[in-house]
């Protein structure tokens, strides 16, 4: 085996190892930004029209209608965002809730958000301390306008376009 081939193989192997590392990092990077890219693919509530956002146009264009995100604005989970699909969203301390909140004043199954014809409804699930939409206590399924805080214990949630 000529010395030259061995040297090329030796360095080639090291370079290949690092290329592998960077490929893995690339896959992770794609994964991190999957949510951003997926906005157009995640099913939007019915009635929004196609559910496809044109590339480069922010969702702001459809002002006032479609809620795309549920954002936690206050409480321990402040800053958490959930991209809304067609599934209902359960909120509570139970481990299988969509949004698990660790709030002393929240019940295991506290409330849920249900989409109907593009509008989201909040429904209290018999919680101990109640669910509030802005100032009013939620007794039955209540439509949730964009930007109005839903309060559960110390946690506050808002629908955002």
């Amino acid at each position: 085996m000529p010395e030259f081939v061995l040297t090329v193989a030796r360095f080639g192997f090291l370079i290949l190892l690092w290329i592998f590392v960077f490929t893995v990092v690339g896959v992770i990077r794609k994964d991190l930004f999957a949510g951003v890219r997926s906005k157009s693919i995640v099913a939007t509530p019915r009635g929004v029209g196609g559910g496809v956002v044109p590339q480069g146009r922010p969702a702001k264009a459809k002002r006032g209608k479609a809620a795309r995100q549920l954002v936690v604005t206050a409480g321990q989970l402040a800053g958490t965002r959930i991209t809304l699909g067609e599934a209902h969203i359960t909120i509570g301390r139970a481990e299988d809730s969509t949004l698990v909140i660790t709030d002393d004043f929240a019940s295991a199954r506290h409330a849920r958000l249900v989409p109907r014809d593009g509008q989201w409804f909040v429904e209290d699930l018999g919680s101990t301390n109640g669910t509030y939409l802005d100032r009013g206590k939620v007794s039955g399924p209540t439509p949730v306008p964009l930007g109005v805080p839903i309060r559960i214990g110390r946690t506050s949630l808002e629908l955002r376009p």
């Binding site: 893995v24 949510g35 995640v42 991209t83």
Partner: peptide, 17 residues
């Protein structure tokens, strides 16, 4: 826990890697 539902499972990327 920001839940960002990925649209790709990543299985093909796994196979390639």
């Amino acid at each position: 826990m920001p839940r960002v539902p990925g649209t790709r499972t990543g299985r093909n990327a796994e196979l390639g890697l």
